Computed example of a mutant assay.
Amino acid sequence: MKGKIGLVVGLGVGYVLGSRAGRERYEQIKTQWLKVWNLDPVQQQVTRVQDFAKEKAAAVPQALWDGAVRVVRSASAPGTPGQKLDSAIDTAKDAADDVSDAAGGCGEGCQAGRAEEACRQEQGRLTWSAATGTAPTTAC
């Protein structure tokens, strides 16, 4: 979906900037664009995106700082250099997941959760298949 929207916006901007139709056509396009931009559904979505960005903008720097502190602590913990490196790498991966979660993304833990949910759904279908007497075709 993001790719399609980006493509349409890119084509529109390219047309406007590269148009040889002149100022009159530019003004027509601008007028139509402003009509669409000022529609209530569009403005509702704009407001939702702004609110989301404001909410996440505060969470991400704190998650970055907390992750950096954890990585430094794990790298300076007692142990051999190899143990320190392994600990720092594991901590950095966890910190990256935390930052991704703070930004509203889906890190490894989230993806694992989605995989578990898909597995539960699949198991539910397998259970249903067993109850109806049909043989399941896949296993989780």
Score class of each variant (00 low, 15 high):
W33N: 01
L34C: 01
L34M: 13
K35F: 05
V36L: 15
V36M: 15
V36W: 12
V36E: 15
N38P: 00
L39V: 10
L39T: 11
L39N: 12
D40P: 09
P41G: 08
P41E: 14
P41W: 13
V42D: 12
V42A: 12
V42R: 08
V42T: 05
Q43G: 07
Q43K: 15
Q43C: 09
Q43N: 13
Q44P: 00
Q44D: 15
Q44I: 09
Q45A: 15
Q45K: 14
V46G: 11
V46K: 13
V46C: 13
V46D: 09
V46F: 14
V46T: 13
V46L: 08
T47S: 11
T47G: 05
R48I: 07
R48M: 11
R48P: 01
R48V: 02
V49C: 13
V49D: 15
Q50M: 13
Q50C: 08
Q50F: 08
D51S: 10
D51P: 02
D51F: 03
A53I: 14
K54H: 11
E55D: 07
K56F: 13
K56S: 05
A57R: 12
A58T: 10
A58M: 14
A58D: 11
V60I: 15
V60H: 08
V60F: 01
P61D: 00
P61K: 10
P61E: 01
Q62R: 15
Q62P: 01
A63M: 14
A63L: 10
A63I: 02
L64W: 00
W65F: 13
W65E: 09
W65Y: 15
W65H: 13
D66A: 14
D66K: 03
D66W: 03
G67Q: 06
G67V: 00
G67N: 10
G67R: 02
A68F: 14
A68V: 12
V69C: 02
R70S: 05
R70Q: 00
R70N: 06
V71K: 02
V72P: 02
V72W: 13
V72G: 06
V72E: 00
V72N: 11
V72R: 08
S74H: 08
S74W: 07
A75I: 10
A75V: 05
S76N: 14
S76Y: 07
A77N: 07
A77Q: 06
A77D: 00
P78H: 04
G79A: 10
G79I: 04
T80H: 12
T80P: 03
T80C: 05
P81I: 09
P81L: 03
P81W: 11
G82P: 01
G82W: 02
Q83M: 07
Q83Y: 04
K84W: 01
K84H: 05
K84C: 04
K84T: 07
L85N: 04
S87D: 00
S87C: 06
S87G: 15
S87T: 04
A88C: 05
A88R: 10
A88L: 06
I89M: 00
I89G: 01
D90M: 02
D90L: 09
D90F: 05
D90K: 08
T91I: 03
T91H: 03
T91S: 07
A92S: 07
A92T: 02
K93G: 04
K93W: 02
D94N: 02
D94C: 10
A95K: 02
